[in-house]
């Protein structure tokens, strides 16, 4: 298959970027989007040109590293990360526009690569639990209801890829933070830090310069892990409950 690519090229964070038109020729239909870019890059290297910088790691849809916007959709069309987009989903001769995530809190590094450390810093502010060291406890020692376990697992599916903030017209990270707070606050292991987690993660999110949620639900529409925007409602509730709890307790 042949494709007409419009790729965002930018030397560095402060350089001026722009689209470069590149032809992708003789691409197997079963190639993933990233493999297609590999083929294009091999050709560019052979021609002595600079390859397109893009990120990838597991290439099986679970790490969330391959942040890019394909035809206006963060992580590309269909569910799953960009690495799970296959070229057979396009038509031969299609024109495909590839851009980096455009979020102020994710500064651009080069071409399609952005720095998503802001999400790591939010996790460091509260995405953890305290746990005993020593021998592993019995699996059934702590009872968790089926509903709570299901909801917590659904929220835990978040891979922190940043597509939510990239899709949001306000560049809000609420789906990500909501998923983490929902996941840990539903489980008994997450109770000791429950209030502090909601307060600290929202503070960290605001400090990183993400926008505010306007309930557009674009995040939910693109999330490769199918996280429901109901986690945002849970976060809204958890945060205010934490504010009240801290105010009343002190």
């Amino acid at each position: 298959m042949n494709f007409h690519l419009r790729l965002w090229r930018q030397e560095g964070p402060s350089a001026k970027g722009g689209f470069e038109e590149i032809e992708a020729r003789d691409i197997p239909a079963e190639a993933s989007f990233l493999e297609m870019l590999d083929i294009v890059n091999n050709r560019l290297i052979k021609e002595g040109r600079e390859p397109v910088a893009f990120e990838s790691d597991c290439r099986e849809g679970i790490c969330g590293t391959c942040s890019m916007v394909i035809n206006g959709i963060p992580q590309g069309p269909g569910r799953g990360a960009a690495c799970q987009v296959y070229m057979r989903t396009f038509r031969d001769g299609d024109s495909i526009t590839v851009e980096p995530f455009r979020v102020a809190a994710f500064p651009l590094v080069k071409d399609l690569v952005v720095n998503r450390s802001a999400y790591d810093r939010i996790i460091q502010s509260g995405g953890f639990i305290t746990e005993h060291t020593g021998g592993a406890p019995d699996a059934a020692a702590m009872l968790i209801g089926k509903r709570e376990a299901d909801r917590a697992m659904d929220a835990a599916a978040c891979i922190g890829c940043g597509a939510c903030a990239a899709a949001c017209p306000n560049s809000s990270a609420m789906l990500f933070v909501g998923a983490k707070v929902t996941h840990l606050s539903l489980l008994p292991q997450g109770q000791p830090e429950r209030s502090g987690r909601a307060l600290n993660m929202v503070r960290a999110m605001d400090e990183e310069g993400f926008g505010n949620c306007s309930n557009y639900y674009a995040c939910e529409a693109v999330c490769p892990a199918n996280i429901s925007a109901s986690v945002i409602a849970t976060l809204n509730r958890e945060f205010v409950a934490a504010v009240i709890k801290v105010e009343v307790a002190n």
Partner: peptide, 15 residues
């Protein structure tokens, strides 16, 4: 302040 320039290809994405 949080959102940079818009994408070249604009999708409505559910909104």
């Amino acid at each position: 302040k949080a959102s940079l320039e818009k994408y070249a290809v604009r999708q409505k994405l559910e909104t």
